[in-house]
Amino acid sequence: MFESLKMGDKGKIIDISRVGKLVQRRLLDLGITEGSEVCVKCVMPFGGPVMIESCGQCVGIRRKEAVQIEVVRL
């Protein structure tokens, strides 16, 4: 669960299929998919977006999409 990750925590994505199709496609374009290691860099207040890092690049996604990504903590 993404929610369980806090700032600075690292995780590995195990399931991304519950996320909306378009967002999934875009994340795939950026190389973020099942098996990718991600690190939560920053969480915006008031349910705002989160900033995650994968392979040295930072990506911002919305909280409601982030919580649909299944991750295991590393």
Partner: peptide, 11 residues
């Protein structure tokens, strides 16, 4: 309803 926000944050 559809909305999409995925943004690359360049260094």
């Amino acid at each position: 309803e559809t909305s999409l926000f995925v943004i690359e944050l360049p260094p």
